[in-house]
Design a protein around this nucleic acid. Sequence first.
DNA 1: AACCCGGGGCA
DNA 2: TGCCCAGGGTT
Length: 348
Amino acid sequence: MAQSPLIAQKTEFQRALLAWYRVHQRKLPWRTAPSLYKTVVSELMLQQTQVKTVLPYLARWVEVFPNFKALAAASEEQVVKNWEGLGYYTRARNLHKLAKALIALPAIPETREAWMELPGIGPYTSAAITSISFGTRAAVVDGNVVRILTRLTADATPFRDSASASKALAPLADALLNHDEPGDHNQAMMELGATVCHRNNPLCTICPVLTLCSAGRNGDPESYPKLAAKVIEQRSVSRVWCVQKGKLLLHRTAGDARRLANMHELPAAEHLGLDESAFAGPDAKLIAKKKRGITRFAITESIYELPASRLSKDSLSRTGLVWVAVAEIDTLTLSGPHKRWVSELLRS
DNA sequence: AACCCGGGGCA
DNA sequence: TGCCCAGGGTT
């Protein structure tokens, strides 16, 4: 890598990138009126989530929880409720824990290593927060940077996944980092990836570093990075729709569960101790068939309407089951898909 | 290193 | 429908 022509033109690259960023950066809330708090909240929200999706959540979040102290003082229920619909809810719990940890410290840490110790903060987020807020010389490597770096150098290495690509490209990202403006350099890299160096149809004609880009000059930028195709596994789940006396039966996942802790969904067959035969009878009616995807799973959820009389006392006494008045459902936290499906089924 | 997290948007 | 997105945690 030391012999990379790109490294030899490092200064030219940095200047062109930063000059472009000064002019063309989008006005985003964490840039317009920056603060450590907004930077941290936005970075956690932006993990695996696009800018456009984050914007309304961030705006509401800083209204409800204006600073670390307010966030630390909030209940976990309130914190997760305000994350409802963003997905990957562990991020919300981690942000809550982080706020509590931070206000308990004698001083706000300013090193990447110290931030790495905090919940929800890994290699990317620690570099982003410390470079932007404290000028720490740490290069970020996210999906945008992977795309830019592999195109700049026409790096045809086949990567198993984006995590291994990030790790492999970290040295190059570090070597290119502008030590005078690490925060802006990092943001400029990501901004270039988000607005010019698109995955498909990259706008090479307006790219500030086209002359330094191997793939761009070769005319095949779209062929980078070379990532292995993800293997998707099909799964299916049966859910129960049961309304009695104006109340809907829901399942609340345990607070220490690995997935969807303290969140509500329509009860799955297993939550009621039912097997597939329970849905074969004449009083079970398939009322919806829905699909959801997460990471490597494509899940089909079949929702069966079942009369309450069909459920045994033993089934209904299982832990996590709750009867919720239809009017009260909005006060609970549901997973994004179930929030939509329940509201859809209640209307019909 | 591999797997999990059970989201959401977009072409 | 397939693929990507300002990833991190666990084993």
